[in-house]
């Protein structure tokens, strides 16, 4: 038995997710909210990897592993980012993009 879901449907989901992330990335000012948007975008790409792998190259596993590693790296990135954000907060008491200008030349 097979599922009759067109590949495009998956892709539409990921696209919407992706551009929600983009929108969030542009409009948010809170660093954590920015990070959340980034997570959305990452997720969207991960979905794409998996979907293309599954639909177009069912015999292989590259997409799958890409997603896997993507998740791992996203985790790493988040950990570091959050550490930085907390540090920033500790130093400037703000985590809004407009206020963090100390490192600008």
């Amino acid at each position: 038995m097979e599922i009759e879901i067109h590949v495009i449907h998956y892709l539409v989901i990921s696209t919407v997710m992706m551009f929600c992330g983009v929108y969030g990335f542009f409009t948010r000012k809170n660093l954590l909210a920015l990070l959340i948007s980034v997570e959305l975008m990452l997720n969207a790409t991960n979905i794409n990897f998996a979907v293309f792998n599954r639909y177009l190259f069912p015999g292989q596993l590259e997409g799958h592993f890409f997603s896997l590693f993507g998740i791992a790296i996203a985790a790493a990135e988040t950990a570091v980012a959050i550490a930085i954000i907390i540090n920033v907060y500790r130093n400037v008491k703000h985590i809004l993009t407009d206020d963090i200008t100390d490192l600008k030349g």
């Binding site: 983009v22 990335f25 542009f26 920015l34 993009t97």
Partner: peptide, 12 residues
């Protein structure tokens, strides 16, 4: 400007 958001917008 140093604003990543603006850069990305231009990029996109």
């Amino acid at each position: 400007s140093g604003r990543i958001q603006t850069y990305t917008m231009w990029f996109l």
